[in-house]
Design a binder for these strands. Structure first.
Lengths: 135, 135
DNA sequence: CAGTATCCAGCAAGATACTG
DNA sequence: CAGTATCTTGCTGGATACTG
């Protein structure tokens, strides 16, 4: 990647690594799970219930990914009815800061974005309708 | 979504909208393009060259999406060799702030993440190798 | 309860070719 | 130059069923 701009912050060095983190944040469920675990440690089924709409498969995959990246810690209690708890690591907790910042930005600008979309879509529609005798 | 945690910041209200924004940020190319345009307005081919590896199709799609969300403004100069410029809107520029924050976090924690992954993968490998007479 | 395994649909995305 | 159109592929992600 050559997104070479000089402002102190993001150089092209480590660019793919940063992209990977961004991708994880962009994943549909990751942030939801992180935010849910931010409150307190939870069990598998608790998360599944909380994050409505996620499938077991996706939850497992997501948790695996988060665990692999060291954002979530998985603890197995070897008892008769299996008991597994997931909790944020220090790293995971530190991630909630910038994520909340982004989430807050998103929330604050939803009206702008919605307006822009409505505008854009309106123009799209007009374009389609305004080629009268052409074709 | 019922990711109901109370800390002032992210409620489940507008949750999907926020997710959409997050998804856009998570898109492989969006952030790269935004960061590139942060410097100054650019033409289509300039962006294509800068963001190495993107196809025309993906660039067009990405720019369309960013334009639709009001993050990027597209200006066509009706001259003989077509000339189109893309630039960040005020909204787009305001997004660079939290994105850079996230990018910075990512950069700062790359070592931690890499270490965690190495750890995890090592344990995975061991697991596979340590079931000797079992199978 | 907490997964794993399997199957399958849909879309993301690359390559390529054509156009105003 | 700045796209659009078309084809194809591979991954994402959902549903379902089975297991320790």
């Amino acid at each position: 990647m050559n997104v070479t701009n000089n402002p102190p912050g993001l150089e092209h060095t480590d660019c793919q690594k940063v992209s990977q983190v961004l991708a994880r944040v962009g994943e549909k469920w990751s942030v939801l799970i992180i935010m849910f675990l931010a409150e307190k440690p939870r069990r598998f089924t608790e998360i599944k219930r909380a994050v409505n709409g996620i499938s077991q498969r996706m939850l497992t995959l997501c948790l695996r990914g988060l665990e692999r990246d060291g954002l979530v810690k998985r603890t197995v209690f070897p008892v008769v009815p299996p008991h597994v708890e997931y909790e944020l690591t220090a790293l995971g907790r530190s991630l909630t800061q910038p994520v909340i910042a982004l989430g807050t930005w998103a929330r604050d600008h939803i009206p702008d974005i919605d307006a822009a979309r409505a505008d854009f879509d309106a123009r799209e529609g007009v374009q389609a309708a305004q080629a009268p005798g052409q074709r």
